[in-house]
């Protein structure tokens, strides 16, 4: 039953990273286990919560629903690739988290929105994070953080 490994090169946060994985390995596991990028979290592993959200060619995706081998040659961005991003600053300012487990996913969902729409409306903000659960219930402040990042207070 031993499965042969496949070589795949992932382009993560601008750098080429070669990994050898089982074909069934998800992008999330490849990031978290093979590349040591643990910012994206595994909370359900079945596309229900958004904790694993990363960007694939600029779009927010659930990394637990993608196979790593299908992501070769695509542009992958994770929270580790952000540096002093206005969204990160705004999350701290608005206290947009408690336990913080959903936070990287929330930020990446908003990152995708902001790269298309630099000054989104409240409605667009809510829609962008509506697939990101926060069991601590920080939604109000998550929306507030996004508003701050959009230049509205």
């Amino acid at each position: 039953m031993s499965v042969p490994l496949e070589s795949v090169t992932l382009r993560v946060n601008g750098a080429e990273r070669a990994v050898r994985v089982e074909p069934r390995r998800t992008l999330l596991d490849a990031l978290r286990l093979d590349l040591g990028l643990t910012g994206a979290k595994k909370a359900c592993d079945m596309g229900n919560c958004g904790a694993c959200t990363v960007l694939l060619d600029g779009r927010a995706v659930y990394a637990c629903l993608l196979l790593a081998i299908d992501c070769a040659g695509r542009e992958i961005a994770t929270v580790e690739g952000l540096h002093d991003d206005p969204l990160q600053r705004a999350f701290i300012e608005a206290d947009a988290f408690q336990c913080g487990f959903c936070t990287p996913g929330q930020i990446m969902s908003l990152k995708a929105l902001f790269s298309r729409t630099p000054a989104p409306s409240d409605e667009e903000i809510v829609r962008a994070v509506s697939g990101n659960l926060c069991r601590c219930g920080a939604y109000r402040n998550i929306v507030r953080a996004a508003r701050i990042a959009a230049g509205r207070r």
Partner: peptide
Amino acid sequence: MKRIEGPEKVTGRAHYACDVRL
């Protein structure tokens, strides 16, 4: 005052039990 662990939590540097790699 803001949460002291904020910077760790917004960068993915905050390590949870599931993030330990030995």
